[in-house]
Write a protein that binds this DNA or RNA. Structure first.
Lengths: 210, 210
DNA sequence: ACTTTTGCACTGACCAGTCAGTTCAAAAGA
DNA sequence: TCTTTTGAACTGACTGGTCAGTGCAAAAGT
């Protein structure tokens, strides 16, 4: 009974139930927002009884917080993997950033609802899960900041760049472009979007020609 | 039945009350979200009775929609003004973009709550005010797209850039960087942030030295 | 001048409905 | 057997929206 809810020590059955609840909650909350989403709705969409929700999570807020941790865990793992991929084949740091942009797009492509919900909640204040959100944000941005710092150290990037702010700007670039892509031009290919953002990243916007 | 001369379409008193309600609602909704904010709270913060809210607006949603229109009106006016400013002194299109970035930062600096709320709601689906939000988004992005197109036409930008996507990415860059600035490093100056974003815009990130 | 009327703007108690969270006996796995 | 899920009933707090009534300043009436 004491089984910690985050650790994968729970039974496979319980874990499967949790997964279903995550998936139900993430879409509903992305569409309607946290407050407008009822626990009854989540249970219904997940195909379980309301009691099951409270058997698996202490409260609606706790369910949401664990959902956040779960999702950002996936994202950071994906970003890190992308950066390390270019590392091992001796790519430059711009290549690493580019690979992370692609990883970000792939993530958003796969989990659009989570991304929506994350953006919608990130800059709110006075909320119960504010601290969770801060931790989780820092984990994600830190990966980008890390690559920027390495780039500066290696002399590939200007020493004058503002690492935290540039990281935030890059994340914002990908985030907003991707959400717009999904919302307003969902038929475009990921490669297409990636190419456009690459161009922007590498400053190939001004100046004519390719 | 005398028509008040100060404000066409409503008495000055009424207009003042509406303004108070906008201000109260924008901060509360930015902090807590639409659903989590109660009409009682809005009324209390505005210093009016609950009935007054419903005297001035048909419903909670309508209040919110009019608030969105009001705010985005201010933003687009500001962006257009910035772009036209560089136009008249014969600046390049990059200068226009740069001026708009600054205008965006100034706006976010002055109305941080509105920006938060806008970002939080923009990509939601299945909401009553979805159509309002779309219109309002298009108004804002169109200003940036316009400058990009003019830049392409003038040969200043590559013909291969993807105008809508690049516009979205630029907006996202400013938006996220600014929200992070306000949330996590509020002591920094606007000039500082502007400089960092300018550098990114002009591709002066890679390559060493300034 | 000065009294009465009009109607806009506002008030706040009130209502009907909703929702998170609880409880628990019984059923279904494993 | 022990864990997990079910499902329905219940509670108590809260919320969007309503409405009969108040205050007041300008217009109308005398």
């Amino acid at each position: 009974m004491e089984r910690s809810s985050t650790t994968p020590g729970g039974s496979a059955r319980r874990e499967a139930t949790r997964q279903k609840l995550y998936e139900a909650a993430v879409t509903l909350i992305a569409e309607q927002g946290f407050s407008a989403t009822t626990v009854d709705e989540i249970a219904e969409r997940a195909g379980v009884a309301k009691g099951t929700v409270y058997y698996n999570f202490a409260s609606k807020s706790v369910l949401f917080e664990e959902l956040l941790r779960h999702g950002v865990g996936l994202l950071t793992a994906s970003l890190r993997e992308a950066a390390e991929g270019t590392e091992q084949e001796g790519g430059s740091k711009v290549d690493a950033l580019d690979a992370m942009i692609r990883a970000g797009l792939v993530f958003i492509d796969r989990y659009p609802a989570f991304t929506q919900l994350y953006v919608a909640e990130l800059w709110r204040t006075n909320r119960a899960w504010q601290s969770t959100l801060m931790v989780v944000r820092q984990q994600a941005v830190a990966v980008v900041e890390g690559v920027l710092r390495e780039g500066v150290a290696a002399g590939e990037f200007s020493e004058e760049i503002d690492v935290p702010l540039t990281a935030a700007a890059l994340v914002g670039m990908v985030l907003v472009a991707a959400l717009d892509w999904k919302s307003f031009q969902p038929e475009r290919s990921l490669d297409d979007v990636h190419a456009a953002l690459s161009r922007l990243l590498q400053g190939r916007v001004s100046g004519r020609g390719q």
